[in-house]
C-alpha cells in the first residue's frame, strides 16, 4: 500500500528529516542532561461504548466486566496510590486526559491540577476512537474535548495524544486546527522535533512507548523487576547522550497497571532512581515544548530537508 495523496495533503511525512549535523544542540535549563516528565493516562472507559467501524472498544463482548473493572481500578484505587508516590519523589508532568473525566470523576483530575500538573488532550473517552471519523468530525471532536478540559483547568490545551492511539489521515492537521502546539504520538526520537511546517508550528515531544507500562507489563508481560531494569537502562543511556545534547525521558503510565500493588513498587524505585541523579530537569511537557520553541525550533526548521524529496 502506498501513502495516499490525502495523507500527503495532511502533512505527511509529519517528521521531516534533519541531518545529524544540522540539529540544534539542546541545553536544558541549568545544563540538565535530561528533561524528565511523567504522563499518567487518566482515562474513562465506557461499559457500553458506541460501536467503532474499525476497532472494537473491548476485547470481549459487552459487558466486558473483567476489563471494564480493571480500568476502573485506575480511577478508584491506582491513581491515589500513584499520587502518593509522585508526591514522595516531588514528581511532575502532564496528564494525558480523557476529557470526560472532568465530568464523571472531577476529583481525580482536580488532584493533578492542585499539584500544578498540565492537562493535555487524550480524546473524550478511551472507548471512542478516531478511526472512521471525517476530518470535519475529528476536528470538532478534538476542539470539543479541549474545550471541556480548558473550562475545567482554566487554561488552553496545548498537547495532543490520540485516544487509544487511534488516528485518521487528518488527525495531526485537525489537532493543529484545534489549537494544539505539540503532539506525543510520534515515537521516532528521544528529543523534541519540529513537525512538517506545512502543518503549522507544531512539535513532537517524546512520550516513549519503550517505557509504557501497559505495553511492557501487560502486552510484553515483563515482571516489575525487569521493567525497572529496562527503565534504568533507558534512562542511563539518555543521561549519557544528554551530556552532548539534551534528551527527554517521557514516562507513559496507566494507574490501572502501575498503580496495582504488584507494580507500584517499580514506580517508586524508578522515580527514586531519577532523583539520585543531578542534571535532571523535572518538567511538564509544556515546559519542555516552550523551551524548545524558544531555543531550538528555528534552527531545527532551518535545517529540514525538503519533505517532498522523501515523501514516498
Amino acid at each position: 500500500m502506498t501513502v495516499s495523496q490525502v495523507l500527503r495533503d495532511n502533512g505527511w511525512p509529519f517528521l521531516p528529516r534533519i541531518p545529524r549535523g544540522g540539529r540544534p544542540v539542546i541545553r536544558w535549563p541549568d545544563e540538565a542532561r535530561v528533561a524528565f516528565w511523567i504522563a499518567p493516562n487518566i482515562e474513562f472507559y465506557e461499559l457500553y461504548p458506541p460501536v467503532n467501524p474499525v476497532r472494537p472498544s473491548w476485547p470481549r463482548p459487552a459487558p466486558d466486566i473483567l476489563n471494564y473493572s480493571w480500568r476502573d481500578y485506575g480511577n478508584r484505587v491506582g491513581v491515589w496510590r500513584c499520587l502518593e508516590v509522585f508526591d514522595k519523589h516531588r514528581a511532575t508532568g502532564s496528564v494525558s486526559l480523557n476529557a470526560a473525566m472532568c465530568q464523571h470523576l472531577p476529583e481525580v483530575v482536580r488532584a493533578f491540577v492542585d499539584r500544578g500538573w498540565e492537562l493535555f488532550y487524550h480524546g473524550l473517552y478511551n472507548t471512542r476512537y478516531a478511526f472512521g471519523s471525517s476530518p470535519e468530525q475529528e476536528q470538532q471532536d478534538i476542539a470539543a474535548a479541549c474545550r471541556i478540559i480548558a473550562d475545567f483547568r482554566g487554561e488552553r490545551v496545548r498537547g495532543f495524544l490520540a485516544p487509544a492511539l487511534t488516528y485518521t489521515e487528518a488527525s495531526l492537521r485537525a489537532a493543529r486546527q484545534a489549537g494544539i502546539d505539540y503532539v506525543f504520538d510520534l515515537f521516532r526520537e528521544d528529543e523534541p522535533f519540529p513537525l512538517n511546517p506545512a502543518l503549522g508550528r507544531m512539535l513532537s515531544v517524546p512520550y516513549q512507548v519503550e517505557l509504557n507500562d501497559f505495553h511492557h507489563l501487560v502486552v510484553g508481560g515483563l515482571s516489575p523487576r525487569r521493567y525497572v531494569e529496562q527503565f534504568k537502562a533507558h534512562f542511563d543511556r539518555l543521561y549519557r547522550e544528554g551530556e552532548a545534547s539534551g534528551k527527554v525521558v517521557g514516562l507513559p503510565l496507566h494507574p490501572y497497571v502501575i498503580g496495582s500493588p504488584h507494580y507500584i513498587g517499580a514506580l517508586d524505585e524508578m522515580l527514586g532512581y531519577v532523583r539520585q541523579h543531578d542534571g535532571v530537569w523535572h518538567a511538564t511537557a509544556a515546559q519542555i515544548a516552550d523551551w524548545y520553541y524558544a531555543h531550538a525550533y528555528d534552527q531545527a526548521v532551518a535545517h529540514i530537508e525538503d519533505p517532498s524529496e522523501r515523501a514516498a
Binding site: L47, D72, A100, Q103
Partner: peptide, 15 residues
Amino acid sequence: MTPAAESPPVRRLDH
C-alpha cells in the same frame, strides 16, 4: 459545540 457548563448532568459511573 456545547460548553461544559450547559451540558446535561453526567453520571459519575455509567451504571
